[in-house]
Structures are given as C-alpha cells and as structure tokens.
Amino acid sequence: MMRVENLSKRFKVDKKANVPKDRLDGKWFQALSNISFDAKSGEVIGLLGANGAGKTTTLRLLSGILKADSGNIETDLASAEGDSRDYRRQLGFLSGSKGLYERLTVRENLNFFARSYGLTSEQTNQQIDKLSQQLNLSDFIDRKVIELSTGMRQRAAIGRALVHDPQLVIFDEPTTGLDIVATEQVLSCIEQQKQAGKTVLFATHHMDEVQLLCDRILVIHQGQRNFFGTEAEFLSQYQADSLVAALRGCLQLGVAK
C-alpha cells in the first residue's frame, strides 16, 4: 500500500529556462502542486500526462531521489521523509534509461544491486537464479550489457529493478522504443507483479497498455492532479468513449469538478 498526500515541489530556474510562465513565481518554477493519491497492494496505477506535466518529478519524488517541499509519501512500512533508506529498500524503479552498467555483465549488475539493497550473498544468488528463470536471462546473464540487444537489456533492467523483491514497483515509460516482443515481456512482468500483490505505478503514453493493466488512473497536468479514479470513472467524467478522448478532454478542460 502507498499513500501520497499534498505533494508539492518547486525548482529554482534561471531566466533563460524554457518553462511555462504561469507556473513561475520569481525564480521558482512550481513543478507540482498538492498531488494526492493512494495505491493498494496488488493494484496498478497508470500515471498519465503530457510531456512537461510533472510526471518525471512525481516519479523522482516517489523514488526518493528528490525531496518534496511539502506533503507526505508513505507505505505500510516506511516514509520517504527524513532518512528514507527503509522506504527505498521497498522500492523498485525501472526507467527508460534502464539503469544498467554497460561494462559489467548482467550477473554483476544484479549482484551489485542486490548486495547494495542489503541481501546476503546466499539471498543474492537465490534471487538471481529466480529472476534468471522468470525473465529468461540465462542465455546472456554472463555477457556484458553493452553486447546485448535492446530487448535483452530491458529484461536485464527489469531484473535489476526487482532483484531485492520490492513491495512498490515503479515503471517509467518502460515500453518506449521496444519492439512488440519486448513490449509484451514488460507488460507480462507488470502483470506478474500485480498478481504477486505488489503495488505498481506505471507511467506511459500508450492507452492500450493502460486499458490492459491499470486499475486506476492518475492524470497530472501542469503540475496538478486533474483526475484520479478508475477507467470507467475517467470515461464517464469526460463523457468519452475511449481513453484517448477522455485524456484529451481532461487535458483541455483542466481539473475535474
């Protein structure tokens, strides 16, 4: 379970920065304003929004990389406030950049991340064996990442994000640039996480993926929460017959009443 309340974040920007003027307060750019939502165990939340809406800032706050100016992020076991190490131990994050070290083998990557999350040598080996089977990594687990195809890298990156068996998993546009086979593997992995009772946050621009996987949808626009609810509520709210039409309506009309 995860609960996010009134999350706000602003950044200092220089005069030449290309940012929307209506969110500018002197030298400060209001990236996020009072974002709230919750996610249950075994639930997939789809995070939608146009480029520059504040999705990346939201994910960085949720991942503990950035500190919020105000608001709370909590899970069952820990808070992202203060010393957030316990919180980060429960978190797995898969970003578009994969987060793998190219000069290391897949096994070395997995080993490093597992040990850094505090797993013992024995636990690490067990997890690597388990993920190797689940994600079909065995054919290339001892090859350097730089030698792998995009699809192989993505599987290895999923392994990297899940190696410490996190309770909360965040996927940031994980299918961007992937072919259909690799995309299916990623979507299947998200489904597996859901089945395993993990809380999943999934940022994407693909509405078919949202329809396939997400239990609830969070739309962020211009740093604010425009909508949070189920797919049916989303369609009803904006009187649309498809997610694309609903999203378009949401982004044009602004915050739902």
């Binding site: 316990d86 980060r88 994050f93 950049s97 987060g99």
Partner: peptide
Amino acid sequence: RGTLETLLMLPLT
C-alpha cells in the same frame, strides 16, 4: 547514461 538516478535510489545517503 541515466545510471546516477538508479544509484540515488539505493538505500544509501
């Protein structure tokens, strides 16, 4: 390369 963000997510200060 985008790996710094991954490092910052580790349970390290």
